[in-house]
Amino acid sequence: MTLDTIDRSVAMLVGVLCGAVVVVGLGMRGDAGLFPAIAATLGLLACMGIGLDTLRSRPPDELPPSLPWHRFTIWCLCILGLLGLMVTVGTFVALPLFLLASLRWLGHLRWAAALMIAIAFSVLIYVVFVYLLAVPLPAGWLTD
């Protein structure tokens, strides 16, 4: 996909959303919907502008830099794993696992190095947030 195609799709999608906001906003009680309706109208105009802009024939229609889907997927899975484990098993199980996984599979560090950094960094987070700042991070199974 070229940038122009992407821009056109984005303009369409956001434009429809803005339109919906205008409709909902105007239906609100009192003057509550006035401001969102004005903002969304502005968005709608910008979308139309962007859409028209893509139709103008300009020679250099660039391609966005290619996305390495393989690495992108691994990274997203790592993040989902981190959040999932954080609320179930607890922050200080999730953190080292997340760091280990992403450093090993994305950073291609050796297991030993990845493990060391993961543990050291988790300890740092523990000291800063739990010990010094007393932030009650989700502890999961580690409570009691």
Binding site: A11, C18, V21, P36, A39, A40, L42, G43, A46, C47
Partner: peptide
């Protein structure tokens, strides 16, 4: 820029 600003306002 205007578009992202409008989204921010919404």
């Amino acid at each position: 820029g205007v578009l992202t600003a409008a989204v921010g306002l919404v």
